[in-house]
Write a protein that binds this DNA or RNA. Structure first.
Lengths: 217, 217
DNA sequence: TAGATTGTTAATCGATTAACAATC
DNA sequence: TAGATTGTTAATCGATTAACAATC
């Protein structure tokens, strides 16, 4: 087990990666932390601090970092060009949206299937293009995971009242990582401490903006 | 201008609010911080710390907080039952998904319109149900905002290369709050320091989970 | 009363920013 | 050389956790 890395650092690494992707990877191109700040918005101090923390020390004074090498170093940290198969539990609007999310494609995240309790969503699945991931009934989850033992990650796009229950079930079925999009902090049962969870409610951040604007004066 | 509140606190407040919404608001019902921990996942210590920070001290020893009063106190902090009109820039999948996002409805966030450069998205708009927000061409943004001076907030669901440019334009048009969903940290120009921004890239958190799982051993 | 729960302070933990010697 | 940029340490800032007296 390597060093633990916080969510914040992971996010920034993915931003660095995204930025480098758009640059030329020819051998003699360098980028300084200041230039990388301009592209990613992360301060140059923060960038160098991150690299230091991650053990990336390939910079040259007066030049910066060779783009190609930096790119490779970041890939060592984040397995970002490795294809990762995931499933989505909850085939509502958000679930379907995420199943076709562009950024997921770029990052090689592959949504294999969605699951839901609602029959109407499953029958509606045919309307979706053939390029889309299929929607199955939640009862088929158990069998599906047995047939696809490589799937270790599930995204939860369920209402908050059923989210924790589903998480417990997923853990029992052997899922090792979960991203929860409900406005509630889900916890991993004690008997499964190796399972990873991140709670990431979309739109909660909008309230920060609303608060600042409508609470003035 | 009231006290500044961090994004984290804002998120937790909205979780408390969400939890209370589902409870009975009759006069003699109380909830303790421990019980609230069970529902929201936020630790009771954290909850009391938040309330202290926010100046909410309505608890009774041995009983906890009167649900109805607590609800009202939270509403004082977060203008959560006030309708807020917003626009979305970028009518791709994510933009359209957010324009119909359930949690936004619950929280009285009203997407008035979407804007995009792509003609095909605008013509496609008619296919969307009449309950959906209309999609306009980005050229109409200026006029639209003049006609709707109450709109102070924009959600940005654009690719990262055009996001900063659009932000600058929005600021010039008088927008006061922006949530950016591109994988890039956008900055507010110095001449407009009163404008609020939150960067909230969906799916970046997935990488935390992927990292933890695929970097073991 | 005894037990439970608050409000509040202090301690800890973690993340960001600032600074600067080293050096290309 | 002089200037720019790194790697790294130290200082600051902020957020969470722990602890506990007060008291219902």
């Amino acid at each position: 087990m390597k060093k633990k890395i916080s969510l914040r650092v992971i996010k920034r690494i993915s931003f660095y990666y995204e930025a480098l992707l758009k640059l030329n990877l020819s051998d003699d191109l360098y980028i300084s932390s200041i230039k990388l700040e301009e592209i990613t918005g992360v301060s140059s101090n923060q960038i160098r601090q991150d690299f230091f923390y991650l053990g990336i020390s390939i910079g040259k004074q007066k030049k910066g970092y060779q783009i190609k090498r930096l790119f490779n170093e970041l890939k060592k940290v984040l397995p970002i060009d490795r294809r990762v198969d995931v499933i989505i539990i909850g085939a509502g609007r958000l679930g379907c949206c995420l199943s076709e999310y562009k950024l997921f494609e770029v990052r090689h995240i592959n949504v294999v299937a969605l699951f839901d309790v609602k029959e109407e969503l499953i029958s509606k699945a045919e309307e979706r293009g053939s390029h889309c991931a299929p929607i199955h009934h939640i009862d088929k989850l158990d069998g599906f995971l047995s047939e696809h033992p490589n799937i270790k990650i599930a995204l939860l796009t369920l209402p908050e009242n059923s989210a924790q229950e589903m998480l417990n079930k997923l853990v029992k079925l052997g899922i090792k990582g979960i991203v929860n999009f409900a406005p509630k902090i889900l916890k991993i049962p004690e008997y499964a401490e190796d399972v990873q969870i991140v709670n990431d409610c979309i739109g909660a951040s909008l309230y920060k903006v609303i608060y600042q604007i409508y609470n003035k004066a």
